[in-house]
Design a protein around this nucleic acid. Sequence first.
DNA 1: GTTAATGCAAATTGTTTGCACTTTC
DNA 2: GAAAGTGCAAACAATTTGCATTAAC
Lengths: 146, 146
Amino acid sequence: MPSDPGDLGARLRESGLRLTPQRELILRAVEELGHATPDEVLAQVRTHASSVNASTVYRTLEVLEELGLVRHTHLSDRAPTYHSTREPEHFHVVCRRCGVVRSVDPEVAAPLVEALEREHGFSPDLGHLALFGVCSACSSESPATQ
Amino acid sequence: MPSDPGDLGARLRESGLRLTPQRELILRAVEELGHATPDEVLAQVRTHASSVNASTVYRTLEVLEELGLVRHTHLSDRAPTYHSTREPEHFHVVCRRCGVVRSVDPEVAAPLVEALEREHGFSPDLGHLALFGVCSACSSESPATQ
DNA sequence: GTTAATGCAAATTGTTTGCACTTTC
DNA sequence: GAAAGTGCAAACAATTTGCATTAAC
């Protein structure tokens, strides 16, 4: 699912921004990795190109997020992870014990979304959501341990 | 709702840990502040006591969390915020535009919890959850802007 | 040729660690 | 008085910023 550079260029130009090889490489890296921290994106870019600077990665991820081409979420207490918005919208569940991350169809959360809108006038953004907990494999293994 | 020092002391002793003035002050600060980052806790402690070291705040919040007396969640992309578990269990919704944080009864998310358990065998921990989105005041003000 | 974008190095922010000293039990 | 806890300073990780240089348009 490599990125279509024309699309990126068009989106950038709409906002008076410029298409650079770094921006193409960084978007491509995010798409290849699925979910990745800025550091991982940097490492991935370096497998293709000689080098890109870390600050360029941060600046570019910010730009790509403003353009709506990537999103970020927090899958750990450490660095955020970015993913392409070409993937269908989803939220994440993360197992605290084994660390496994699964993407979940937002439809599952529809009742929650409706209740929050109805009862609190609040429109949640599920794309940013990561829910921590314990997966089935881990809870059957050692139900007592938290 | 100041903390009962006897309770803290008892919990600590159960685990072979010691009751210190710093630990009392830090727990008290968290309870007074409602939701606070380590930095804010430090500042609050200093309004009572001459001084406590920042590393003691980090170490103590970790201990208090292990004892189940406080919990943390991520209400921003920056530092985590801690709150007392004396508050009834809740999760948080955060408005991206005005920054307002509201606590929500976990009952609202019961259908989501059940669906995740049924369909994915996943038991989510709502206490750690912060949902980002837009509150009613902000969405009526300027519905177009994200 | 203008202006945006990048690279680099230094500054910031949030957090952790090693170790000598202090305090609790 | 033994072991746990604290303070302090230094190390660390992730990110941001200022500014000179480079590249897109």
